[in-house]
Measured scan of single mutants.
Amino acid sequence: MDGTRTSLDIEEYSDTEVQKNQVLTLEEWQDKWVNGKTAFHQEQGHQLLKKHLDTFLKGKSGLRVFFPLCGKAVEMKWFADRGHSVVGVEISELGIQEFFTEQNLSYSEEPITEIPGTKVFKSSSGNISLYCCSIFDLPRTNIGKFDMIWDRGALVAINPGDRKCYADTMFSLLGKKFQYLLCVLSYDPTKHPGPPFYVPHAEIERLFGKICNIRCLEKVDAFEERHKSWGIDCLFEKLYLLTEK
């Protein structure tokens, strides 16, 4: 054995408090879109979701699917093309516009009456609605409950000090017999300040354990050449399924 860690023996890093005071403002996230600093976007979609999607959907149609901090995630069109209703929230209007443009979807925009100064973008087909606002303002819009949440790049982007508020927001959107698919990253948080932030299993239990059954479905090596600039040499991604207790 050469000592290389595999996707099945990932350790939890003990120094989980080192990132707790890290803060990125909404304006800084918007600047990332304006300046093209969106390496977190996956042009081909998320491979773990693609692998498990049909198993999760079980042939159902007409589900309501929520994408927190959606950006221009191509997976939104995957669900819409399968007959589901997609709702996303994203602070960057540019990111939302790029989604519709890159997916060749016509759309309209209208003000969100409950949140002055914000807009919702709706596909002409009517099954994709993307709200351009802070996720913490979203419950004011009465958008209803969801059958499924796809959380990739959301919890790991939320400032650590806001995670409890974020989890409570997610709980307010969950319908009966929900499936909450959650991706988190595992790396040494003493070497990279984030975002994306390190979210250990214990944190998921703390945030969601009282209401959800929590199961880790898969762990994969997600390290890429660009991650060397973070000062790390190891990065794993974990896919969790959260269901109603």
Rank of each mutant, 00 (worst) to 15 (best):
D2Y: 09
D2W: 06
D2E: 14
D2T: 11
D2A: 07
D2K: 13
G3E: 13
G3T: 14
T4L: 08
T4G: 13
T6S: 14
T6H: 03
T6Y: 08
T6K: 15
S7P: 05
S7G: 14
L8M: 15
L8A: 15
D9F: 10
D9A: 13
I10C: 10
E11G: 08
E11T: 05
E12M: 11
E12P: 02
E12C: 10
Y13C: 11
S14Q: 03
D15F: 09
E17T: 06
E17Q: 12
E17S: 09
E17K: 08
V18M: 12
K20V: 11
K20Q: 15
N21D: 13
Q22N: 15
L24G: 05
T25L: 06
T25I: 05
T25V: 06
T25Q: 08
L26H: 11
L26P: 12
E27H: 15
E28C: 14
W29E: 08
D31Q: 02
W33P: 03
W33N: 02
W33E: 04
V34W: 06
N35G: 11
N35L: 13
G36M: 12
G36H: 15
T38F: 12
F40A: 04
Q42I: 15
E43V: 10
Q44D: 13
Q44A: 14
Q47C: 09
Q47N: 10
L48T: 09
K50F: 05
K50P: 03
K50V: 07
K51A: 10
K51G: 06
H52A: 03
L53E: 07
L53M: 14
D54M: 02
T55V: 10
F56G: 07
F56T: 08
F56S: 08
K58L: 06
G59P: 11
G59E: 14
G59A: 11
K60E: 03
G62S: 10
G62K: 11
L63W: 11
R64E: 02
R64H: 14
V65F: 04
F66T: 00
F66H: 02
F67R: 00
F67A: 05
P68L: 00
L69H: 08
L69S: 12
L69Q: 04
G71R: 05
G71S: 05
G71I: 03
K72V: 02
K72G: 07
A73E: 02
A73V: 01
V74H: 07
V74W: 03
V74E: 06
E75I: 05
E75M: 09
M76V: 02
K77V: 11
K77M: 11
K77C: 15
K77A: 12
F79Y: 06
F79P: 00
F79V: 08
F79A: 06
D81A: 08
D81M: 04
R82G: 07
R82D: 08
R82K: 09
G83F: 04
G83A: 02
G83L: 01
H84N: 05
H84M: 10
S85F: 12
S85Q: 14
V86L: 01
G88M: 01
V89G: 02
E90W: 09
I91L: 07
I91P: 04
S92V: 03
S92M: 08
S92K: 05
Q97K: 01
F99A: 02
F100M: 11
E102A: 10
E102T: 03
N104L: 06
N104G: 11
L105K: 02
S106L: 09
S106D: 14
Y107G: 01
S108Q: 03
E109S: 03
E109G: 09
E109Q: 09
P111Q: 11
I112C: 02
T113M: 14
E114Q: 10
E114C: 12
E114G: 12
P116S: 13
T118W: 03
V120C: 08
V120E: 02
F121P: 00
F121L: 07
S123E: 13
S123P: 00
S123R: 01
S125K: 09
S125Q: 09
S125L: 12
N127F: 06
N127Y: 12
N127E: 12
I128F: 03
S129E: 08
L130T: 01
L130D: 00
Y131R: 01
Y131E: 00
C132Q: 15
I135T: 02
I135H: 03
I135W: 08
F136D: 06
L138W: 04
L138V: 14
L138P: 00
P139R: 12
R140G: 10
R140S: 06
T141V: 13
T141E: 04
N142T: 12
N142A: 12
I143M: 05
I143F: 15
K145W: 04
K145R: 06
F146G: 00
D147T: 02
D147E: 05
M148T: 06
M148L: 14
I149W: 00
W150S: 01
D151G: 00
D151T: 00
R152K: 12
R152L: 03
G153Q: 03
G153Y: 02
A154W: 00
A154Y: 02
L155S: 00
V156G: 07
V156K: 02
A157K: 04
A157Q: 09
I158W: 03
I158G: 00
N159W: 04
P160H: 09
P160T: 03
G161H: 13
G161W: 08
R163S: 01
K164D: 11
K164P: 14
K164G: 12
K164E: 13
Y166K: 00
Y166M: 02
Y166R: 00
A167S: 09
A167T: 07
A167V: 12
D168Y: 14
D168Q: 12
T169L: 13
T169S: 13
M170E: 00
L173V: 15
L173W: 08
L174N: 00
L174T: 05
G175M: 08
K176G: 13
K177A: 11
K177L: 02
F178V: 02
F178R: 01
F178T: 02
Q179V: 14
Q179G: 07
Y180D: 00
Y180K: 00
Y180Q: 01
L182Y: 01
L182M: 10
V184A: 09
V184E: 01
V184R: 02
S186G: 06
S186H: 13
S186T: 14
S186W: 08
Y187P: 04
D188N: 10
D188T: 05
P189Q: 10
T190H: 15
T190P: 13
K191W: 06
K191S: 12
H192V: 09
P193K: 02
P193Y: 15
P195E: 07
P195G: 04
P195T: 05
P196Q: 02
P196S: 10
F197V: 02
F197K: 10
F197A: 09
Y198G: 06
Y198L: 15
Y198W: 06
P200G: 15
P200N: 15
H201K: 15
H201A: 12
H201V: 15
H201Q: 15
H201G: 12
A202F: 15
A202N: 09
I204P: 01
E205T: 08
E205Q: 10
E205I: 06
R206P: 03
L207C: 14
F208Y: 09
F208V: 06
F208L: 02
G209V: 07
G209M: 15
G209C: 05
G209P: 06
G209F: 05
K210Y: 15
K210I: 15
K210M: 14
C212M: 06
C212S: 02
N213A: 14
N213Y: 14
I214L: 07
R215M: 07
L217E: 04
L217P: 01
E218H: 12
V220C: 03
V220K: 13
D221L: 09
A222R: 10
A222Y: 15
A222E: 06
F223C: 09
F223R: 06
F223V: 10
F223Y: 08
E224R: 06
E224F: 12
E224T: 11
E225R: 11
E225S: 11
E225K: 10
R226A: 14
R226L: 14
H227G: 07
H227S: 06
H227F: 04
H227R: 09
S229E: 08
W230G: 07
W230S: 09
W230Y: 05
W230P: 04
G231P: 07
G231I: 12
I232P: 04
I232W: 08
I232D: 03
I232K: 03
I232M: 05
L235P: 04
L235Y: 08
F236P: 06
K238P: 03
K238Q: 15
Y240G: 01
Y240I: 12
K245A: 10
K245T: 09
